[in-house]
Computed example of a mutant assay.
Amino acid sequence: MIEIHVIDAFADKPFRGNPAAVCLLERYPSDQWLQQVAMEMNLSETAFLSPQQDGSYRLRWFTPTVEVDLCGHATLASAHYLWETGRVDRKQALAFHTLSGWLTASAGEDGWIRLDFPVERVTETDAPARLSDALGGAVPRFVGTNRLDLLVEVDSEEAVRGLKPNFAIMAELGVRGVLVTARSQDERYDFASRCFFPTEGIDEDPVTGSAHCALAPYWRDKLGKDRLTAIQSSARTGILKLALVDDRLHIHGQAVTVLKGSLLHLPTE
Results as ranks from 00 to 15, higher is better:
residue 36 Q to G: 05
residue 37 V to G: 02
residue 38 A to S: 12
residue 41 M to K: 14
residue 41 M to S: 07
residue 44 S to E: 09
residue 46 T to H: 04
residue 47 A to C: 10
residue 47 A to L: 06
residue 48 F to T: 05
residue 53 Q to E: 14
residue 55 G to E: 02
residue 61 W to E: 12
residue 62 F to V: 10
residue 62 F to W: 14
residue 63 T to K: 09
residue 63 T to I: 12
residue 65 T to Y: 06
residue 65 T to G: 04
residue 65 T to K: 12
residue 66 V to E: 15
residue 67 E to F: 12
residue 67 E to K: 08
residue 68 V to I: 15
residue 68 V to M: 10
residue 70 L to E: 07
residue 71 C to Y: 13
residue 72 G to D: 13
residue 73 H to E: 07
residue 74 A to I: 06
residue 74 A to E: 11
residue 78 S to G: 08
residue 80 H to W: 15
residue 80 H to F: 15
residue 81 Y to K: 06
residue 82 L to G: 09
residue 82 L to N: 12
residue 83 W to P: 13
residue 83 W to V: 08
residue 86 G to R: 02
residue 86 G to K: 09
residue 87 R to N: 10
residue 88 V to L: 03
residue 88 V to K: 09
residue 88 V to N: 10
residue 89 D to V: 08
residue 89 D to K: 11
residue 90 R to N: 04
residue 90 R to C: 07
residue 93 A to T: 12
residue 93 A to N: 13
residue 94 L to N: 05
residue 94 L to A: 03
residue 96 F to Q: 08
residue 97 H to P: 03
residue 97 H to N: 15
residue 98 T to Y: 01
residue 99 L to H: 14
residue 99 L to G: 09
residue 99 L to P: 11
residue 101 G to W: 15
residue 101 G to H: 15
residue 102 W to C: 13
residue 103 L to G: 03
residue 106 S to T: 15
residue 106 S to G: 07
residue 108 G to H: 14
residue 108 G to C: 08
residue 108 G to M: 10
residue 109 E to H: 07
residue 116 D to R: 11
residue 116 D to L: 08
residue 116 D to Y: 02
residue 117 F to Y: 08
residue 117 F to T: 04
residue 118 P to M: 02
residue 119 V to C: 06
residue 120 E to N: 10
residue 120 E to W: 10
residue 121 R to P: 15
residue 121 R to T: 09
residue 121 R to H: 04
residue 121 R to G: 00
residue 121 R to K: 11
residue 122 V to P: 01
residue 122 V to C: 06
residue 123 T to V: 07
residue 124 E to P: 05
residue 125 T to C: 13
residue 127 A to V: 04
residue 127 A to D: 06
residue 128 P to I: 04
residue 129 A to K: 07
residue 130 R to I: 00
residue 130 R to E: 12
residue 130 R to S: 06
residue 132 S to L: 01
residue 133 D to C: 05
residue 134 A to M: 05
residue 136 G to S: 07
residue 137 G to Y: 02
residue 138 A to S: 13
residue 138 A to Y: 10
residue 138 A to N: 07
residue 138 A to K: 08
residue 139 V to T: 15
residue 139 V to G: 01
residue 139 V to F: 01
residue 140 P to G: 06
residue 141 R to G: 03
residue 141 R to C: 11
residue 142 F to E: 05
residue 142 F to N: 04
residue 143 V to D: 09
residue 143 V to C: 12
residue 146 N to Y: 10
residue 148 L to A: 10
residue 149 D to C: 01
residue 149 D to E: 05
residue 150 L to S: 07
residue 151 L to Q: 05
residue 154 V to K: 00
residue 154 V to G: 00
residue 155 D to K: 04
residue 155 D to A: 10
residue 155 D to T: 10
residue 156 S to E: 01
residue 156 S to H: 00
residue 157 E to D: 04
